[in-house]
Nucleic acid binder design. Structure first.
Length: 767
DNA sequence: ATACATACTTAGCAGCCACCGC
DNA sequence: GCGGTGGCTGCTAAGTATGTAT
């Protein structure tokens, strides 16, 4: 195969021949052209040694089983060169933060808010640390000084009132509080899917019994043996009532509570990094709960235990004051490691892995990492041609390992697959590129491939695509007997081999960089296609469409919301009703002037398009809706009156309302029979009605577009790509060039996260 | 090379709350 | 003004990647 052939991989290899094809089309069924000439040696068996099948065995088991006492975590890394702390700037940043908080309190007053924002901006300009304007030094050292106040622990368990209990075989069970807490975790989920999942039930019940045993068993000698004999409903109901009560609080009370909480959290929400005040991300320690693994997770439902101060390692400057541990406790360890970003960590008990407390997304450290990530992806631009040329050539390599690498990189590049590291048996069975198995890929000659597997978060990846002919051939070889379902497709590959290979092209190049690169490249290309015209709303729609192609490329999905089908139906009913109203208007016009039918027959065609059945359906829908409305109104009104101790509305009132509806119904029925519309007073002239028709058409138009947009977005999640894959500078440039306010594209938090991008590019910047 | 340990990014979802159409 | 709805945010699970010891 030639280099030219390689560059025909459709999506964006040298975006020449199909620049004008909307990506949305090519993405659904991505086609890969192939000019490969199948010469005989291509088919030579590339297995260059007979250990070929040796690694075929399914996946390896067990990892992370290593246990280590929490009290003695591994020693910190050696690199503890602590550069001298920079001078600390004074209270300026303090003031700023308070201003932000105050802002939250006051609603409405737009001007005031604007003013304040303006003020803040000024302050920002004075003393904000603009790291992106500085030279970038050593990045193995993350900070010079770090001070913080530790972490917030969840409140201790509050036992339930004594009349709320778990029931076993119908008998109340007295649980020690520690066990009651665990039972409560389950009870709270009673109506969720988790509670119906047998694995979840089993894992929960085991751990629950364990905790019960640890605490001396039940207090009233009920022996719990089977999950199915437990009744959590009383507990569940109690939680529901509590939730309801919380909701019932006045907005004043809610506000009060919120303010108190914010005040308490203030000290933990911020830390001091190199003398600057920066936000901490997850300063709250995760509360105990039942582990909610995604997909078919073997450990789902297990108890995630409470974390104590003794479990926590704090990381801060040597000279920083050590925050006091909660009363009667001490910290597990204090560390001074400035080669890492985390402020605190602990080991969790589900996988025995670590959880970290780190800085917020708007912090300088995170911003710098983010910036670096996108710069690395941009660097790939100057290597991508060589990489594609090489993998295209290596698709025919005599060496099996090379062929596998070539195909893998092809898949990662073209279909944006993840690297696909090995997983242990106690995790959900999900895969990425390197861990693809026989059954995940179906080959349909001549060159169609169906991918069907569960990826990260057990999100299904399903695509039927055409691939390069040589890729197809290779996949056929990778699936040859004795391989069978359960066997690895890339039996000689893992991400580290792949990454090592990739680093030959460019330092720091790894599989994931391709996702960033292709996502941002796609976005750039899509934005380039948008004409600079129309309203802001129209431009936004186009921006979102571009965003959507990226999300589809990266397979970012979301579950359709519960009410989605209903919402769609409602919306299309509305549109249908608008159409119907239009027809009525046109009928009315004819009633005013019959002669028009001959003059403009086209205009009145729609009248015939509406069938009697459809019309009757619409009538019924409207009437039903109105009846319901009356009834609801009646009930509501009386509820209110009851509450205020006023006299209730008599039934006759309801009847009166309903009679009005009945009249309308008669009118509709008559209209259906005769085809004659009762002329409204506003329909005094043909012109007026025509104007109304125009309005209706406008509404139909917008409603239809909105509906379509909603439908297309129902399964696609735009946020993930916007937050993680699309270089934010692209969006900034788009806004600048197209006069779209950045607020329309980035929420407040995103604007803070991407401050570096917003302030650093002009409108000529390109990815 | 493998196995494990560590640290950092990416991911979807629940719940809340502001806003919008009636 | 009211109730539903969609957008945001917080949360934490689930990935990727690299360093270190064996």
């Amino acid at each position: 195969m030639t280099i030219a052939a390689a560059s025909k991989v459709k999506r964006d290899l040298s975006s020449d021949d199909d620049d004008d094809v909307p990506l949305s089309q090519t993405l659904r069924k991505r086609k890969i052209d192939s000019a490969s000439s199948a010469s005989s040696h291509d088919d030579a068996d590339p297995y260059d040694s007979d250990e070929a099948i040796s690694k075929i065995s399914k996946k390896k088991k067990t990892k992370r089983i290593k246990t280590e006492p929490l009290s003695s975590p591994p020693s910190p890394k050696k690199k503890t060169t602590t550069p001298k702390p920079k001078k600390i700037k004074k209270e300026n940043s303090d003031v700023k933060v308070k201003a932000t908080k105050k802002k939250k309190e006051q609603k409405k007053k737009q001007e005031e808010e604007d003013q304040e924002a303006e003020d803040q901006k000024l302050k920002d300009e004075e003393d904000e640390y603009k790291w992106w304007e500085k030279e970038n030094e050593d990045d193995t050292i993350k900070w010079a000084t770090l001070k913080h106040n530790g972490v917030i622990f969840p409140p201790p368990y509050q036992p339930l009132p004594s009349h709320i209990k778990l029931y076993y075989d119908g008998n109340p069970v007295d649980l020690p509080p520690q066990a009651e807490e665990v039972a409560g975790f389950f009870a709270a989920l009673l109506e969720s899917d988790h509670a119906k999942n047998p694995v979840f039930q089993k894992n929960f019940f085991n751990d629950f019994l364990q905790v019960l045993k640890e605490n001396g068993g039940t207090l009233n000698n009920v022996e719990l043996k089977e999950f199915s004999r437990c009744d959590f409903t009383k507990m569940f109901d109690y939680f529901q009532v509590q939730k309801e009560q919380k909701k019932q609080l006045t907005s004043q009370e809610k506000k009060q509570i919120r303010l108190e909480r914010e005040k308490f959290e203030e000290d933990y929400k911020f830390c001091e990094l190199d003398g600057r005040k920066e936000q901490v991300g997850n300063f709250k320690v995760e509360p105990p709960d039942l582990f909610r693994g995604r997909g078919a997770h073997p450990k789902t439902g297990k108890l995630k235990r409470r974390v104590n101060p003794e479990d926590i390692v704090l990381n801060l400057s040597k000279d920083a004051p050590i925050p006091p541990a909660p009363e009667g406790h001490k910290w597990g360890e204090i560390r001074h490691d400035n080669t890492v970003q985390w402020l605190a960590m602990w080991r969790e008990n589900i996988f025995n892995s670590f959880k970290y407390v780190r800085l917020a997304a708007n912090s300088s450290l995170k911003g710098q990492s983010d910036f670096k990530k996108f710069e690395k992806a941009r660097q790939l631009k100057s290597h991508i041609d060589a990489i594609r040329r090489d993998y295209t050539r290596n698709l025919k390599s005599k060496v099996m390992l090379e062929r596998q690498k070539a195909v893998a990189i092809y898949l990662i590049d073209v279909f944006a697959l993840r690297a696909g590291g090995e997983k242990s048996e106690d995790e959900a069975d999900t895969v990425g590129c390197c861990s693809l198995r026989y059954e995940h890929v179906t080959l349909k000659p001549p060159n169609t491939v169906i991918f069907d597997f569960l990826g990260k978060d057990s999100i299904r990846f399903y695509q039927e695509v055409e691939v390069d002919k040589q890729v197809f051939k290779n996949l056929t070889i990778f699936k040859r007997p004795p391989k069978q379902p359960g066997h690895q497709l890339f039996d000689r590959l893992d991400p580290s081999i792949l990454n090592k290979y990739l680093q030959n092209y460019m330092p720091g190049l790894t599989a994931k960089v391709f996702r960033t690169y292709n996502a941002s490249k796609t976005m750039q290309d899509q934005l380039d296609l948008i004409p600079n015209k129309g309203s802001v709303a129209e431009k936004l729609l186009k921006y979102n469409a571009a965003n959507r192609t990226v999300a589809i490329l990266c397979n970012h999905q979301r579950t359709v919301t519960k009410g989605h089908a209903q919402t769609v139906e409602k919306a299309s009913n509305r549109i249908q009703e608008l159409e119907w109203q239009k027809v009525r208007c046109k009928r009315a016009i004819l009633q005013l002037d019959k002669g028009l039918l001959k003059k403009e027959p086209k205009y009145f065609e729609e009248i015939e398009d509406l069938t009697k059945e459809d019309e009757a359906t619409i009538h019924k829908r409207i009437i039903d809706r109105e009846i319901e409305k009356c009834q609801r109104k009646f009930v509501r009104e009386n509820d209110k009156r009851k509450f205020e101790k006023e006299e209730l509305l008599p039934e006759t009132q309801l009847k009166e309302w309903l009679e009005k509806v009945e009249e309308k119904k008669q009118e509709f029925e008559n209209e259906l029979k005769t085809g004659e519309v009762e002329l409204k007073s506003t329909w005094s002239s043909v012109e007026k009605i025509k104007a109304q028709v125009e309005k209706l058409e406008q509404r139909i138009q917008t409603s239809s577009i909105q509906l379509k947009d909603k439908e297309e977005n129902s399964q696609v999640s735009l946020g993930t790509s916007k937050i993680n894959y699309i270089d934010p500078r692209l969006s900034v440039v788009f806004c600048k060039k197209f006069d779209v306010p950045i607020e329309k594209i980035f929420t407040k938090t995103l604007r803070e996260k991407f401050k570096w991008a917003i302030e650093s590019v002009d409108e000529n910047w390109r990815f």
